[in-house]
C-alpha cells in the first residue's frame, strides 16, 4: 500500500512546523507538503514547501497538483500577529478557508480534511454549562468578530462535508494552548508584570498543553472522524490559582472599568487582550473531551492543571513573586 500524502497549511507556525516534522518522520506518510508565506520554523528536510498565500486563488491550481489524500488546515489566526490588522486576520481566516475548500473541491484525490479550529465558537458565557460538548456550538449567539469568523468557517466546512460525503471532515475545536515553546495570548497574559483580572470573579479555565495539541492533530490525521471534536486538557483550573502558580501579581479591576484600564495598560506595553480573551477571563469555558478520547482514540497526557504546572516549570521567565512555601519550608 502506498504511503499517505498530506498537505499542511500554516506550516510556518510553531504547531504547523512541529506537525510537519512529526509526519515526515513517520513511515506511514510518503509525502508531506507545507503551504505558507512564512518559512517553516524548523529544518524540514522531507517537506515540500509551497510558498503561497492561502487567500490567493492560485492555490486552487497548486493543491490539486500535490495529489494529497489529506489536508490539515492549520492557518486560523487566533490573535493578530505583529503588523497584522484585524481586517487581514479576518481575511486569512474566512477567505483563506474558503479558498482552501474550493481548492479541495478540485482535488479528486482528497479523502480527509482536518481543521485546527477553536473552542471559541462556544463563547464564554455567564450561565453556560461548565462543559460544552460538540452538540452545543450554537447555544449562544456568536458575539465577537473571531467567533463569527470561526462560525463562518464551520458553516463552509459543514456544507463541504455534506456535498462531498466521500471526504471525512474533522473539525477540531481547540481550547487555548499553553506551552514553553508557544507565544499565545495565555502565555503573554501570564508573563506580563501585572496580570489584570475581574474584581470578585474567579472563572474556571481550560487549556491544552502544546504537546497534546500536536499529538491530537497527528491522531486526527491518522484516524479522522466525521464532525466536530473538542481538544483540551481534561479538568479545569481557577484563574486565581493559575496566576498564583505563574507567580505573578494580579490586578483586580471592577468589571465596568476593565476595558478602559487594560486599554491604558496596552499603551504602556502590556499585552493586548482581545475581546474573546477578555470574555474568557470573565466567564471561563470548559469543554467535554469524551469524543477525542473515545472516537479519535487520543487521551491527552496533561490535564489542564498539569499543563500549567509543566509550563511554569519549563518557561525561561522568573517568578515575580517569590515562592512563599519554598521560603518557609
Amino acid at each position: 500500500m502506498a504511503g499517505r500524502r498530506v498537505l499542511i497549511t500554516g506550516v510556518g507556525s510553531p504547531i504547523g512546523s512541529a506537525l510537519a516534522g512529526r509526519l515526515e518522520a513517520d513511515p506511514e506518510f510518503e509525502y508531506v507538503a507545507g503551504l505558507d508565506t512564512r518559512r517553516p520554523q524548523a529544518e524540514l528536510l522531507a517537506t515540500e514547501f509551497i510558498e503561497a498565500d492561502i487567500r490567493d486563488p492560485i492555490i486552487a491550481n497548486l493543491i490539486p497538483q500535490a495529489e494529497v489524500d489529506t489536508v490539515v488546515h492549520n492557518q486560523i489566526v487566533r490573535r493578530p500577529g505583529p503588523g497584522m490588522s484585524s481586517h487581514s486576520m479576518h481575511d486569512i481566516n474566512v477567505i483563506g478557508s474558503l479558498q482552501l475548500l474550493t481548492a479541495c473541491e478540485r482535488s479528486p484525490s482528497i479523502r480527509s480534511i482536518v481543521i485546527r479550529g477553536s473552542a471559541g465558537i462556544y463563547g464564554s458565557e455567564a450561565h453556560a454549562p461548565q462543559f460544552f460538548d460538540e452538540e452545543m456550538a450554537r447555544l449562544y449567539p456568536l458575539r465577537t468578530r473571531f467567533q463569527r469568523d470561526v462560525g463562518e468557517i464551520e458553516t463552509y466546512f459543514e456544507t463541504y462535508a455534506r456535498r462531498h460525503s466521500q471526504v471525512t471532515c474533522t473539525m477540531l475545536r481547540y481550547q487555548p494552548a499553553i506551552g514553553a515553546g508557544l507565544d499565545t495570548q495565555v502565555t503573554r497574559y501570564l508573563s506580563s508584570p501585572v496580570v489584570p483580572t475581574y474584581l470578585g470573579f474567579d472563572p474556571r479555565l481550560q487549556l491544552v498543553h502544546e504537546e497534546d495539541g500536536i499529538d491530537a492533530l497527528v491522531a486526527a490525521v491518522r484516524n479522522p472522524v466525521r464532525g466536530a471534536v473538542n481538544v483540551a486538557g481534561p479538568g479545569t483550573i481557577g484563574l486565581t490559582r493559575l496566576i498564583r502558580m505563574a507567580g505573578r501579581p494580579s490586578l483586580p479591576i471592577a468589571a465596568p472599568l476593565f476595558g478602559g484600564v487594560t486599554d491604558a495598560m496596552r499603551r504602556v506595553g502590556l499585552p493586548v487582550l482581545s475581546e474573546d480573551f477578555r470574555r474568557f477571563l470573565r466567564y471561563g469555558r470548559g469543554v467535554d473531551t469524551t469524543r477525542l478520547t473515545e472516537e479519535v482514540g487520543f487521551t491527552p497526557r496533561y490535564g489542564t492543571p498539569a499543563a500549567v504546572a509543566d509550563w511554569v516549570q519549563r518557561r525561561d521567565g522568573r517568578r515575580l513573586l517569590p515562592s512563599l512555601s519554598g521560603a518557609l519550608a
Binding site: R204, G235, R244, M245, G247, S323, S325, L328
Partner: peptide
C-alpha cells in the same frame, strides 16, 4: 501558627486542589 502560615503560603503559591467544578 507556623503550620497555619505554611498552609496560607502554600495556597498563595497556587498549590491546592479544586475539582473540575471548582
Amino acid at each position: 501558627v507556623r503550620d497555619r502560615v505554611r498552609s496560607v503560603a502554600r495556597r498563595l503559591d497556587g498549590n491546592y486542589q479544586e475539582d473540575e467544578w471548582g
